[in-house]
C-alpha cells in the first residue's frame, strides 16, 4: 500500500515539475564529476534550458565564477555550438577559457554601452534556438525581466547564465538557481611547490524545487572533482610554497 502511495507521490511531483517549467532535457550535457552538485536539482540533472544566476562581490570571485562557468560551458559547446557573452564592462580574458575546455573563438562577445541594452540583447539571444548558452553580465535584474528570460528559454531550450557583479538588492527572481563561487586554497599535492589546480567553494543559495548546499570543487584534467577531504579543518600552510 505504502509503495503505491510513494509511486503516486513521485508521479505527482514529476507532473508538478513539468507545470513549473522543468522540462525533461533530451540531450542533457554531461558534466563529469559534478554529480554531487547535480543531486541538489530536481531529477538530479543540471538544468539546461534554464536561467542561472551567479553572484560575485570582488574581482577574485568574478574570476572564480568565470572559471566555473567555463567548466559548465565546455560540454554545452560541443559540436561547434556557439555561446554568446553579453556585457557592458567586460574584463574576461578569452585565452583563459581554453584551459577549461572551451574554444574561445566559438564565443561571440557583444560589448554594449548600457546595462539596459544587455538585458534586451540577452533576451534576443535566448530566443535564438540552437545556441549553446548565453552569458549576460548585469548588476541587477528585476523579477519581471527574469520572468521574460525564463519564458524565452522555455521556448528555445537555451541555457542562460546571469553574472551579477556586486548586486545591489537580492530580490526574488525567476532564475532556476542562484550560485556563488568563492576561490579556495589550491593544493598542488605531494608537497609540490607552486599553485595547484583551481579550487572553488560552490554555494547553491537558492534552487527551485531543490536543496541548497555547498561543495568544495576542483577543476583538474578537464573535469570537476568534488573534494572529499575536509577543507575547513585544513590549517593554512605556514610555509610558502614557491615554484
Amino acid at each position: 500500500m505504502s509503495a503505491t502511495k510513494k509511486e503516486i507521490i513521485s508521479q505527482l511531483q514529476k507532473e508538478l515539475l513539468l507545470l513549473q517549467g522543468f522540462k525533461p532535457t533530451l540531450n542533457a550535457a554531461v558534466h563529469a564529476g559534478l554529480e554531487p552538485v547535480e543531486a541538489a536539482f530536481p531529477n538530479a540533472v543540471f538544468p539546461t534550458g534554464a536561467v542561472h544566476e551567479f553572484l560575485s562581490e570582488a574581482a577574485e570571485q568574478a574570476a572564480a565564477t568565470g572559471g566555473f562557468i567555463a567548466g559548465l560551458l565546455a560540454p554545452l559547446m560541443q559540436q561547434g555550438r556557439v555561446c554568446i557573452w553579453i556585457s557592458a564592462a567586460r574584463t574576461l580574458f578569452p585565452p583563459a577559457l581554453a584551459a577549461f575546455g572551451v574554444t574561445p573563438d566559438q564565443i561571440i562577445f557583444v560589448d554594449l554601452q548600457r546595462e539596459r541594452d544587455v538585458l534586451w540583447a540577452m533576451e534576443e539571444a535566448l530566443k535564438c534556438e540552437g545556441l549553446a548558452a548565453v552569458v549576460g553580465e548585469m548588476r541587477d535584474i528585476s523579477f519581471t525581466a527574469s520572468r521574460r528570460l525564463q519564458l524565452a528559454v522555455e521556448q528555445s531550450r537555451v541555457t542562460g547564465f546571469i553574472l551579477r557583479h556586486q548586486p545591489r538588492d537580492l530580490n526574488a527572481n525567476a532564475c532556476v538557481a542562484r550560485w556563488r563561487v568563492t576561490p579556495l586554497h589550491s593544493e598542488p599535492g605531494d608537497n609540490m611547490p607552486g599553485i595547484g589546480f583551481p579550487r572553488w567553494r560552490i554555494t547553491l543559495l537558492k534552487v527551485r524545487n531543490g536543496k541548497p548546499g555547498e561543495w568544495p570543487l576542483e577543476w583538474a584534467q578537464g573535469r570537476f572533482n568534488v573534494i572529499t577531504e575536509n577543507i575547513a579543518l585544513q590549517p593554512p600552510a605556514d610555509v610558502r610554497k614557491i615554484g
Binding site: 555550438r81 578569452p94 561571440i108 540583447a121 540552437g130
Partner: peptide
C-alpha cells in the same frame, strides 16, 4: 536540429538584429 554553429543562418540573423540596435562594432570574436 543539432545546434547552431558559427555558419548557421539563425546566428547571422541574431547578430544582424543585435548590430542593428547597437552598431556592428559591438559584436566581435577573438
Amino acid at each position: 536540429t543539432g545546434g547552431c554553429g558559427l555558419e548557421s543562418i539563425t546566428l547571422a540573423q541574431l547578430t544582424d538584429r543585435l548590430a542593428g540596435k547597437t552598431g556592428a562594432h559591438s559584436i566581435r570574436r577573438y
